[in-house]
Every structure is written in structure tokens, then in C-alpha cells.
């Protein structure tokens, strides 16, 4: 089960702006889902490998060969705002790009 605080943290991580009633409703929904999960947790899966992919395909590659890019206009058209060839967004102060 999760707390109301957990719900707010999840909303922050997903960049969702929840009102208090929305948060409370989601809290209830999430706990009902998690309750079901808890029941599933009781099943013995010690002899079952975790499944991350459903189709069983492996080793799907492409060769290192160039294909034409999209025209820049196509990208800029989809962006809320742009400046010259750049996509423009509200300033990001934290310089915490991961790479």
C-alpha cells in the first residue's frame, strides 16, 4: 500500500499536476491495484524466469548505414515553439543532463 505522499511523488516524477481531489481518487485506485498485486505476489514463481519480452525474438539488428533524415521543418512544426533551427523550451536551470 502507498501513502498520499507517495502518490504526490509519483505525480512529480511523471510531471502530472494533480489537484487534491484527483490525488485522493488516484490514491484509492492505485491502492486497489496494488492490493491485487499483493495477491499475485503470493504465487510461487521461484521456478519461472522473469519475462520482459513477449514475442521471443532476439538479436534484431540494423547495419550501420545512413538513411535520409527528416527535414528540420518537420521537427519544428511539431514543437510548441522554435527559434531558427532550434526547438525552444522554457529555460532549464538545473544543468543535470545525465551525459
Amino acid at each position: 500500500m502507498i501513502s498520499n505522499e507517495d502518490v504526490k511523488k509519483l505525480a512529480l516524477l511523471a510531471r502530472l499536476n494533480l489537484s487534491e481531489p484527483e490525488a485522493q481518487r488516484l490514491h484509492k485506485d492505485l491502492n486497489s491495484i496494488l492490493g491485487y498485486m499483493e495477491r499475485l505476489q503470493k504465487v510461487d514463481v521461484s521456478k519461472v524466469d522473469p519475462m520482459s519480452h513477449v514475442h521471443g525474438a532476439t538479436n534484431v539488428f540494423r547495419e550501420d548505414e545512413l538513411k535520409p533524415s527528416l527535414p528540420v521543418e518537420a521537427a519544428l512544426e511539431l514543437a510548441p515553439d522554435h527559434s531558427g533551427r532550434f526547438i525552444r523550451v522554457p529555460i532549464v536551470i538545473d544543468q543535470g543532463g545525465e551525459n
Binding site: 521537427a75 515553439d81 527559434s83 533551427r85 532550434f86 526547438i87 525552444r88 523550451v89 522554457p90 529555460i91 532549464v92 543532463g97 545525465e98 551525459n99
Partner: peptide, 18 residues
Amino acid sequence: DAGKNIHDSRTHSSLIDL
């Protein structure tokens, strides 16, 4: 890798090059 941001404090925006 991620793209590049150029911070432009004058217009209070960030410019993105992908």
C-alpha cells in the same frame, strides 16, 4: 547520448539541438 541545450537567459528560454 542526449541532445544539446543552449541556455539563453536573455529570452529566458533553452534552445534544443537534437
